[in-house]
Design a protein around this nucleic acid. Structure first.
Lengths: 245, 245
DNA sequence: TCGCTCACTTGTATTATAGTTGTCTACATA
DNA sequence: TATGTAGACAACTATAATACAAGTGAGCGA
């Protein structure tokens, strides 16, 4: 029976990857080395490797080498913008009620995060199917928010209004007892637990452009975080535990 | 296996920083010294140090030197890290006190997650510098935990004991009021808010191997999630909002 | 105390070399 | 025609060696 050389090599390398001979993130032997080891030409080696690349098992960078790909389990940053959009995907009607809309001097904490001393402060209640769902306060540097009106903010999420390419965010998740004001806005009894989120959103230059504070009633909400593979190779995600003073 | 020199050096220095060879605030050896020590050029040394700087582990001032950053901004080290490991990197002494160690029939929820009907159930209190820090309950399929003793569990984190390559985890974060039992274990007043985490850890084949439930006092702890990133190629974390029934 | 020098540090270039992948052409073989 | 071999070249990467600019801090002298 006739065998296809590059398929043989592909399965051999595939087995090595599966068995962990080549750890994720580490380099495979170079094409030249594999060529010598399998006694096959470089073109054949490449064909084998390329089939594995098509399967997403390995990847290569020119001038660098082949390495075991560590593919994330789930999707990307898209979720960041769409905490509200996510509800609409679930068929929930999301709404916003503006409680406060004002250009103010920020608190020191916000000022430090945004490194500015004049901000637009918007406080609103997010609703899901008409029921209060979250109390959100957003601070945005005044120079970015100059053109925004109260109606703009009521109609669209902040992310869309700014017209800036956002890069990512750092989000802090904590818990506390609900404050009296938030209890009334959310329609929960005093003393209820709430989830707190503080998020600093940055644009593509790394400058912080939004500081937001979210209060969720604990009985209605929880966060799900998918932690991908454990190899640090190229993938930067952190979930860490802090001690707050 | 081929290696990249600056990655080796980066991990070596990272380990030293983690192990406290270089105290926070103190200077690292100069680039020239490190260059001599590792027998690598200054460019390579710099590249290694810069990766650590990107992680927020160290920082530099021109004309002054490299030093350990007091508050690491980001920790890329391993996404799926034990909380103990994170603490020990911060210089906190982590401890465990076993409350319960038994092979039991799991609750339906746990049974469904692990798809087994006989589990090892370990309940313990984690301490940080002697103070109770978290109440953790871990369920593990009995066939995987057969060889574990109570002392094993007390001495080492679960991840190390299993001897299985872990792939990732899905973690749910919520909040609630502390239960009476947990309040006593944690030494917090009744009615305090707590952060709840439920984590399902899977091995490289995708099979769930651990189901764990964590209770943190809210006043001491918060989670930080970094939502990446500039690079679209490798964007591993999804954060989504759920409505719990 | 002030101002200066000097040794040392990081920041940032440039040039060079060896090694790697990406791509192409030419040719052989079943 | 599908498969494999051989070779050449471009583009990229890691690393080294070197040089210079710029900031830091200690010490020294007036």
């Amino acid at each position: 029976m006739r065998t296809i050389r590059y398929q043989e090599i592909a399965t051999a390398v595939r087995r090595r990857v599966a068995e962990g001979h080549y750890a994720p993130g580490r380099l495979l032997p170079s094409e030249a080395e594999l060529s010598a080891e399998f006694d096959a030409s470089r073109v054949t080696i490449r064909r084998a490797l390329e089939t594995l690349r098509d399967d997403g098992l390995i990847a290569a960078r020119q001038g660098f080498g082949w390495f075991v790909a560590t593919k994330p389990l789930r999707q990307t940053l898209g979720q960041l913008q769409t905490i509200e959009g996510q509800m609409s995907e679930s068929g929930i009607v999301a709404g916003r009620r503006i409680i406060e809309f004002a250009f103010v001097r920020p608190t020191p904490r916000v000022a430090a995060a945004l490194s500015t001393d004049q901000v637009l402060q918007v406080k609103r209640v997010n609703t899901a199917d008409g029921e209060p769902f979250a109390v959100v306060t957003v601070w945005c540097p005044a120079e970015l928010a100059q053109s925004l009106s109260r109606r703009d903010v009521e109609r669209s999420p902040f992310y869309e209004l700014l017209g800036i390419a956002l890069r990512g965010a750092t989000q802090t998740i904590g818990a506390d007892l609900v404050s009296a004001a938030d209890a009334e806005l959310l329609g929960v009894p005093t003393g209820s637990p709430v989830l707190l989120c503080e998020r600093i959103t940055t644009d593509t230059d790394g400058r912080p452009v939004l500081y937001s504070h979210h209060v969720f009633p604990a009985h209605r909400t929880e966060f799900v975080v998918d932690l991908p593979t454990a190899e640090p190779s190229i993938a930067p995600t952190g979930l860490r535990l802090l001690e707050s003073s």
